[in-house]
Simulated assay, not measured.
Amino acid sequence: MTANILSSTRLGFRGPQSVSAIGLGAMGMSGMYGAHDEAQGIATIHAALDAGVNLVDTGDFYGMGHNEMLIGRALKGRRDEALISVKFGALRDPSAGWIGMDGRPAAVKNFLAYTLQRLGTDHIDIYRIARLDPNVPIEDTIGAMADMVKAGYVRHIGLSEVGAQTIRKAHAVHPISDLQIEYSLVSRGPEAEIFPVLKQLGIGVTPYGVLSRGLLSGSKPTGPGDFRAHLPRFTGDNALKNQQLVDVLHQLAAGMGATASQVAIAWVIARGKALGVDMVALVGSRKPAQLDEALGALKLELSAEDLQRIEAALPADAVAGTRYDAYQMGHLDSEKQAKIQVK
């Protein structure tokens, strides 16, 4: 395992001021990508901390609380080494189905109470609603979160998958640390309207899906229990077309003495610097070996010419299929506002 090679960055003007350049996304440790191994998950979290990764991202709905309890066990005795980022608000039923969002002020405080208990901690470093609740003004949700900041249960407030208008409304109520949003070589939508607003307001970014859920590394859905089996980019003709992009990236990476994953991660980090936005890339490693490969991206120093060459080989509009299915895309405030801006 590569040790302590991570440079630190701030995450927004008013957010954490010393965050590792790469953060660990823990969702896959509680399903979503098929079978998971708790021991491997805990070993990966420990390896991340040992390497200097201090941002661990989860959601209270990952595994219906399983992910938080796993992280709580992994951080026992090491809580002060980690910044914990938690998404909340997504509602699930006993069959693991998705049944909506709840951003009501009372719900915010209720979700947080259970999260603190599962994680075994007295505070959350960054707390964010996973998706905008269309039935609750964002000002009301952020106001309740601000109450939790004043009470000491939350250190910083973040957002997830919202558009520029919502970001401005939320930031007017309480300073926002960072926006979590999908961003990669093949998901570059935020560059047009969202990132400029973040730069203006001094808000950071924790991009997820930097490998487009493994697409750019060549990973394939493992079976019906892998939610990627239902995503447009991994199915039908789209999968065949996208494999051509993956092949191109593998060839480019080989010429740079790196893996496709490392080039894709390094591109996100370098692109963030070029755009002038504080950016900490989340990698969804489930095993120490995967994490070790991801950290190898930090050894790549991509020049402006490298970025141009990579982007020319994988144009932003070359990917086939949307990042979620039509139903989920319809619930993304970030996508709705983008369409309004186009009109």
Rank of each mutant, 00 (worst) to 15 (best):
Q180L: 04
E38C: 02
L198D: 05
D292T: 13
A239S: 15
P16V: 01
K169N: 05
T121M: 09
M27N: 07
L83S: 06
G97K: 07
S187H: 14
F227T: 07
G272I: 06
F195R: 12
M29K: 05
I194H: 03
A326Y: 00
G143H: 09
R188W: 11
G330V: 00
Q244L: 14
A258S: 09
G77W: 08
T222D: 04
M29E: 05
D50V: 00
H250Q: 14
M69R: 05
F227G: 09
S18I: 00
Q243D: 15
K150P: 04
G23D: 01
V173G: 10
I5E: 02
E161M: 08
G163F: 11
K169E: 12
Y208E: 07
A170W: 11
E335C: 13
V154Q: 05
G218T: 12
I265V: 09
V268G: 03
A320W: 14
I142P: 07
L201G: 05
K339H: 13
S20Q: 04
G163L: 10
Y208H: 10
G296D: 03
V86H: 10
A281R: 03
A130N: 10
R271D: 04
L83N: 05
T141G: 04
G31Y: 14
H174A: 11
T322M: 06
L185C: 00
A146N: 03
A254Q: 07
Y127Q: 03
D247F: 09
L55Q: 11
V86I: 10
T235M: 14
V268I: 05
K299Y: 09
G12S: 00
V268H: 02
Q165G: 14
D333F: 08
R128M: 12
H36N: 14
A260P: 00
V53L: 00
S7G: 15
R271P: 00
D333K: 01
F13P: 08
S285A: 15
T322D: 14
S212K: 07
V136K: 03
L298H: 00
L112T: 04
G15C: 03
P105T: 02
L159E: 10
R131Q: 01
P315G: 12
R228C: 11
H123N: 08
A239I: 15
Q200S: 07
Q243G: 15
V136T: 12
V86R: 01
I126K: 02
G59A: 14
E81D: 13
Y324S: 07
L112S: 08
D140E: 12
L231K: 13
D226A: 11
V186W: 06
L300S: 03
D278A: 09
A90R: 15
R73E: 10
G63L: 08
V268F: 01
P134V: 01
Y153G: 03
V248P: 08
I340R: 12
D147H: 07
K299E: 11
A258D: 08
R271I: 00
E182R: 06
L314N: 02
G100F: 03
E38P: 08
K299P: 02
L231Q: 14
G209K: 03
A151N: 10
M69D: 13
T322V: 07
K109F: 06
G65I: 06
K273V: 15
Q341R: 15
A113N: 12
K109C: 11
Q117H: 12
V268D: 02
I142W: 08
Q341Y: 15
R213L: 15
G163E: 01
